[in-house]
Design a binder for these strands. Sequence first.
DNA 1: TTGCTCCTCACGTCACGTGAGGTGGC
DNA 2: TTGCTCCTCACGTCACGTGAGGTGGC
Lengths: 264, 264
Amino acid sequence: MAGTSQSALRYYDKIGLFSPAARGANNYRYYTPLQLITLKFIIVLADLGIPLTKIKELNSHRTPINIIKLLLWQESRLDREMHRLRTAYSIIHKYRDNIQNGLFANEEDICVEVADDSNECRVIFGPENDFRGSVGFYAPFIRFCESAKRNRINLNYPVGGYHRSVKAFLNAPGQPDRFISLDPMGDAKIPDGRYLVGYVRGYYGEFGDLPQRMASYAEKHNLELKGAVYVTYLLDEVTMTKPDMYLAKVAVGLSRQSMASENI
Amino acid sequence: MAGTSQSALRYYDKIGLFSPAARGANNYRYYTPLQLITLKFIIVLADLGIPLTKIKELNSHRTPINIIKLLLWQESRLDREMHRLRTAYSIIHKYRDNIQNGLFANEEDICVEVADDSNECRVIFGPENDFRGSVGFYAPFIRFCESAKRNRINLNYPVGGYHRSVKAFLNAPGQPDRFISLDPMGDAKIPDGRYLVGYVRGYYGEFGDLPQRMASYAEKHNLELKGAVYVTYLLDEVTMTKPDMYLAKVAVGLSRQSMASENI
DNA sequence: TTGCTCCTCACGTCACGTGAGGTGGC
DNA sequence: TTGCTCCTCACGTCACGTGAGGTGGC
């Protein structure tokens, strides 16, 4: 028989969805040509992902209207499922991107990068953090996670940090003003412009001498650090086994009149 | 704990994917803060749809390269899954469309319809049929189904018939020159132009007096029937319980110089 | 006797959720 | 004694696929 397997037919028989018209003396299942038509109906709906119980329900009251209702119901299920898959796809893409950038990054180097349409990075901002009385960033981070849940933000995207100003970053590099989710569907984006970029390996929120190195680099090359600072982890707990091997990328905004990048 | 359930943690423990660092005297599971990091890694990958066995495998050789490999593997799985869902979606849409048209169709009426971009209907043609020696259209239809399987055509879309010429249709309306699959992703389409359209209720391949009625209607209204004929079933075995209640739509090509539709 | 096709029954799949029944410390 | 939170089993989920072991007719 075309379209389905023996075991499927036995299963349909067992659950009472579709039974043979007759059993032979040898106990074989015999189906009539007309039953093949019913079977086609079942296979089509089952292939659309409609549960067999729904198909069985339909069997007793099968009208065009009820079919349309069932199809609409399945459409909305498919909508949700496709949204889930697209989200998973986009998270995977983001991680692959980060990992590849992390593997190719020269950790010692500090350099100028330009953000524009070609490498647009979208984000979602969390609420403003409050570090009063907290050691490390765990308490505000947990608050961020809770607010994310309320706002239906997917926490599986990598998380980064945002500092309102260079001064704030140099002051307390481990205490961002806000956490950000690197969701490509986010409504905000890291603004176009030029950034001074450095990398650092180590635990979350620990930046070693990178802030100073970046500041002195800027001074030496006559660059004016200005605007916001974005910290993203290219290699994080998903990628690396040891927390001291995480790799952060720090991007510090540069003013427009800073020396052009080709001079560096 | 955030991000997962008790029963999931017990399950991870059971399959050896992620076990607590220690058990209390009361046999409680106790996790260290560092373990929460490992857990986050597991949850992220599991939420992407990666099977737990794969995550477990990864645990022993976790490197950025291996993560990228795993993510690429999952990407291709998601690709296939999304393709399946999109196909299901499009089949559902086609059926809904057909059913709605079928419910609103005036069965007695014959009228002129215009096919253009706004109601484009794409199809896939099956091989040429050979009706020699066969009664009804079952043998050629089964050949069509077999060729469809070979050519990876999805047979869950509604199937219709194509007659090369009006003469062929009037001669043997139940024996189309080719079967067609109403796949919206098909590479062919029902050509733009004007069609004389009629409906008929009944078994597959039975058209009653519709061909004659359409011919005499054309003569009376000075319309020249010309070109191909397309038969599509708006209500078929998926929609209707009784085979004598199927509803076919017959579209017969009209020459350009036929009387304009606004005169009818 | 050997193949062949069908049969029934039981178990596995995958990642948990859901009771039932029990425990330890307040 | 009553709640509370944890525990361990065991069973169900969904649509079959896969053997194991048996049967009936050529």
